[in-house]
Design a protein around this nucleic acid. Structure first.
Lengths: 203, 203
DNA sequence: GTCTATAAACCGATAGAC
DNA sequence: GTCTATCGGTTTATAGAC
């Protein structure tokens, strides 16, 4: 607990967070496979070999960035008003995720096609946090279905995956590239079509 | 028009279609960046150098596979019953696309992150067919909105992108990996949540 | 047209000086 | 811990024999 050690540790943590910010942005911009370690080092302004003093491989570097993303997600989940209806909390999480996506800070889902996926599912810091996020969302989904806010027609598992998938929906990129809508309009378009659907509503 | 020339041309076309089938499957399985030309050659059973006699680069090889996909899409569009309602045609296209996805034959959308995107938007055979598909779908979308089948709340452009995106929705992969649902159930889950939404419907 | 062999470039990871 | 320089492996693309 000496101040020197603590100071050094804090500088160390700070440096690593700057690295993970860069990784997070590059993962969002080009994905894991197209991201090169040289790029990360260049963006941070240090040498590649120095990066490997902090993270022992490219895969663990990306995994740490994904853990950081899930920690931020848990922060958002923790600051939602407890009085809000479950379905409103779900919509709030989707809106936050799409906003992050539009800001270029939402790494793509580790798809079944990604070389990163196997690493992540064997990386306990990642799976622990993913489980926590899943538990929160699943609880809200079941509550909302019981209350009649969410359709009981869809299995809770399918709803969960759908919500996760909306965070990296390429529709956001295409609408943003089109330039016809503001970011906040795009957020409402994606959250709106996701929850209300494309069909006209009877009522 | 000599029979020999025609035969050789037909063999040539047949060989190229076998190649493009393999490329299509690999593009669906691992995406453009992770697909190697060696893999394509191995799957077809010819040497890599022979591939380059048919297609002059990896990018044009992938582009040809994407053109083939759009041609198959136009075939599906062409065989839909003209008497069907526009919204039913849209749903039929989505269902067909998800089925192709589940069979492992739906290459991912050329996302803004892909190295392939710039090649595709400058490749006229691709953009021509993409325009045709877009024109068909856009016509149905506007007709369905006029008739009150699709919600007028969403811009037609957003509906179009949403329908395209459902063809490569990672939700299909996650549900299929879970093993709890048949392929046809997954098709209905994705098409159903896309059109009807997650919310309970008032009526 | 198909093959083997190889060129040329790129990338992840490491050695060793400071 | 950070740097420069480099290794080892992989990938796209091509040369040249058959």
């Amino acid at each position: 607990m000496e101040p020197q050690l603590t100071l050094r540790e804090r500088q160390h943590k700070l440096r690593e967070d700057v690295i993970l910010q860069a990784v997070n942005r590059l993962l969002a911009e080009k994905g894991y496979d197209l991201m090169t370690v040289d790029e990360v080092a260049a963006m941070v302004g240090i040498a590649k070999a120095s990066l490997y003093k902090h993270f022992e491989s490219k895969e663990l570097l990306a995994a740490a960035a994904m853990v950081r993303l899930l920690d931020r997600t848990l922060e958002v989940i923790g600051t939602l008003p407890p009085s809000a209806a479950p379905v409103e909390k779900l919509q709030a999480v989707v809106r936050w995720a799409v906003r992050e996506h539009l800001r270029g800070e939402m790494p793509s889902l580790p798809s079944t096609r990604s070389a990163l996926r196997e690493t992540l599912i064997n990386h306990k810091p990642y799976t622990d946090r993913l489980l926590k996020v899943t538990e929160h969302l699943s609880g809200w989904i079941e509550a909302a279905q019981t209350r009649g806010a969410l359709s009981p027609r869809w299995p809770a598992e399918a709803v969960l995956y759908t919500i996760f998938a909306r965070a990296c929906d390429p529709v956001a990129d295409y609408l943003q590239d089109g330039g016809a809508y503001s970011d906040e309009e795009i957020v409402e378009l994606i959250a709106g079509t996701c929850f209300a659907g494309l069909l006209a509503r009877p009522s």
